[in-house]
Design a protein around this nucleic acid. Sequence first.
DNA 1: TCTGGGGTCCTTTTCCTT
DNA 2: TCTGAAGGAAAAGGACCC
Length: 411
Amino acid sequence: MAAVTATDSPPPRRIAHLDMDAFYASVELLRYPQLQGLPVVIGGGRRDCDQRITTEGSGLPLHEIALADFPRLQGYTGRGVITTATYAARAFGVGSAMGLMKAARLCPQAILLPVDFDEYRRYSRCFKEIITGIAPVMEDRGVDEVYIDFTHVPGGQRESGRVLARLIQKSIFDATGLTCSIGVAPNKLLAKMASEFHKPKGISIVHEADLQTLIWPLACRKINGIGPKADAKLARHGIHTIGELAARERDWLVQHFGKATGAWLHDAAWGRDERPVVTESEPVSISRETTFERDLHAVHDRAALGAIFTDLCQRVAADLQRKGYVGRTIGIKLRYDDFRSVTRDQTIELPTRDAATIRRVAGLCLKRVPLERRLRLLGVRVGGLSRPGEGLRPPEAAGGADRAGVNAELF
DNA sequence: TCTGGGGTCCTTTTCCTT
DNA sequence: TCTGAAGGAAAAGGACCC
C-alpha cells in the first residue's frame, strides 16, 4: 500500500452538538434578574394564564419590579403544563410536563411566568448568527439546539475540537449572557450524547475509541430516538445499557424491532451514524392545534367549536401565506376527553393556502370521525407542502362558493 | 388529578390499479 | 364477472423530539 502523507488524508469528521443550558429559564432570568435562586415555573401560555407581570409597561425598569408583583402558582386553576422550571422549583418536585394545578399544590409560592416564544426566538436567532459567523455549516435543531460541522473550519481540529468549542461558548456568552454545553464527536449521534456529559457550561470530546468506556455503560434511553416505549421494550428483553444493545445480533434486533428500526438500533449502539449536518431544510407540514379550557361537545357546544375550528384554519392559512407555502393534504386531529386522539386527512387536487378551502376540506374530515364523546383538543394541519407556482389556486378564485359551503358545514 | 403545541419520521392499514 | 396477487399511494396511528 502506498504511503499516505498527512496532507493526503482527509481530516477526521468532527461534529459538534450545542445545547443551550436551561434556555427559557435563562432568558427569563436575564430579563428579571431579581428572580435568581427563586422557584420559577414557565408554562401555560393559553389565555387563562397569559397575564404578564402587572407593572410591566408602567415605565419601571424590569429588574426593579417588586417580587410581590409577580403572579404565583397559588390558587391557579385551569389547564396547562409546565414547560420548564428553575432548579429552585424542581427542588419541590415540580418539573417539565407537569400539570400547573398539580404544581400549584406542590409549590404554591412558585412564580409563574408565561412562555414568551418571541423572546426565546430572538435570542435563538442571535446565538445562531454568532455560530455561523464562526462555523458556517450549522444545522438548526430547534430553538435551543444545533449541530455544527467542525471538520473543515480553520482550527476545528485543534485539541479534537475543544478549542473551537471554547471560542463558540465564549462568543455566545459575551454577546448574550447565556451559557451552553457542547459535545464534539465523529458524528451527530455521539455528539448529541457528549453534549450532555458535563452540563452546564461543559465541553466534552468523544472519539471512536471511547465507545466502550464512555458510551456503552449509558442507559439505552440516552440514545436520541429511543423514547419511553422503545426503552420499555428493550428492558423486557433484558437490554438496559447501550453495551447490552451492542451485544445483540443485528438480525435479532431486526426480527424484534422491524427492518429499519432494528438496523438503526444496532448502528446506534456501535456509534455509527453517517447523517450529514444539513444546513437547509423545507417544512413537511404546518399545523395549529388548541386544547380547550373545558371539554366541548360537538352538539352542545357547536357554536364555540365552529368558531375555534374556523380560527384554526385561518391561522394555518396565515402561516402558509407568511412562510410562502401551499399544501395539498389537509387534515384534522382531535383528542377526546379520555385523551385518545384520532386524525383524518384528505388530499385535494390543487395545493392551497386559502382559509376557506382549508376549512371546507377539514370540515369533510371532521365528518368522518365519531363525535359522541366530548373533545379536549382540536387541530388543523396542512401537509404535502410546495412553493406556490403552477397549479396554485389563487385565494380569490376559491372565494364565493367555498365560503358559502363553509356555513353549511358541521358546527 | 392530570397530561401543551408544533413538528418529523416510521409502521401498519386501507384502498386503488393493474 | 370474479378472484387473487402485487405494488404504490394515501390514510391513520404512534413514537419521539424540542
